[in-house]
Structures are given as structure tokens and as C-alpha cells.
Amino acid sequence: MLKIAEREFTSRLLTGTGKFSRAETMLNALDASSTQLVTLALKRLDLHQGRDDLLSPLRKLGVDLLPNTSGAKTAEEAIFAARLAREALDTNWLKLEIHPDQRYLLPDPLETLKAAETLVKEGFVVLPYCGADPLLCLRLQEVGCAAVMPLGAPIGSRQGLQTKTFLQIILEQAQVPVIVDAGIGAPSQAAEAMEMGVDAVLINTAIASSTDPVAMARAFKLAVQAGRMAFEAGVAGPGQAQASSPLTAFTEAL
């Protein structure tokens, strides 16, 4: 079972709530994914517009909420967003993300580490989105992050595990759960991550932007389960060509 900061999860699939065309589709997709932890963002209220009630249906679904600090470009902004999120949602869980780079949305390692250190001291359960940098992941672990969330590829790019070599090192060193966040575009890529021994994956775009998000959510659920099962069963490593059937010489009699 996946355990993050003393909380246990039977599902190893975290999902985002962004980019869905309709709220109903999003809720049905989350339901089909069997996710137990979903991300949300914060924004300033538009005084002239009503606001959609997103929280009631999510709470009804029984999922835990993981607010993010999306939009923050510095540690200071992320800390402000974290405090707001804690107020708005009554949770100290936080997906810390700081990306000043608007083109690739790559996380800022220095600001992320700085913010993580402060937020852990303030009692937050910090899950930082970060580059697949083994040393940075160690540092984030040392300052008390409850998990690390290295990227597989840039957010929304759907390029899969471009950082595989480094994810392997992160997995070898990690004392906290490793969650691949960003870049996974297809269930096969999620299965590949799980087979490596990644503890969980966070998927948003690949589900929300598919033609049938509900079916895709279910496909990801199954892929994550299959990948985990394969990891636990011990995936056979690569080797030289070797027959999997006995090479008996029965043709010699011909």
C-alpha cells in the first residue's frame, strides 16, 4: 500500500482536475480512475462572476485534496499560496510547484528547496514537483518533504519517461515515496514507471485531453495496477537472447 506521511492509499494513481471540458466529465473520470488524491489550484476570485462549486462533488467522491501552488514564481509566492490553500481547504497537504519559466514550466530547484524547508517547519505535508535531479531529491527529502515528485518530461508534453536514467537513481536513494509528476502521456508510460518501482504517478493532461476521459482514466488505473503488480513480481532484467521454450532437437529425426 502507498503510504505518504502516515496516510495510506490503496490507489497509486494521483490525478489532476485541470483541462477537462466539463466538470461532470472530470468527476466521472476521477471516479473511473479510483484515485484517492486529486490536485486543485487557487485563484483570485472574480467579483463579477459566480464561482462553480467544485468542492462539494469532490468531497462527495471521497477523495483527498492536494492543493498546488501553481502560478508561484518564487519561494515567497509559493509560501503565500500554501497558506491560502490551507485556509481554503482545511488541509496541510500541498503540492509545491514553482515554475518561473513560462515556456516549459520547468520547476525552479533553488526556490523549491527554499520553500519546502519553510513549509515543512510550518507543518505542511509537502510534495514537491521537481526536476529529475537525484541530488535535489535527496535535499528535498532531508528538509522533510513527505514525497518527491520528479518529472518524466515537461508538463503536458506527453513524452513519457525522458528522465528514466535519473529516476532510477532517485528510486535507489529515496527514503520517501517517489511520484512521477508530469510528462506521462499514455497508460503504457505509466505502467513503465510503475514497473521501475516508482511509488505512484500523477496524471492530468493525458486523461483530461483524451477523446474519452472516463475510459482513459480507467485505462490509467489498470496500467498503474499492472505496472505495480509487475514490479512486485520482479520484472526480469534485460539479457542476451535466450529461448523461453526448451530447444529440444526433435527436428533432427526428420
Partner: peptide, 9 residues
């Protein structure tokens, strides 16, 4: 400043 929750990844 008032803030609220919205969908996000």
C-alpha cells in the same frame, strides 16, 4: 484579496 479553489493539475 479573496481566493478560491479551481480545477488544476
Amino acid at each position: 484579496s479573496l481566493f478560491t479553489v479551481v480545477a488544476g493539475g
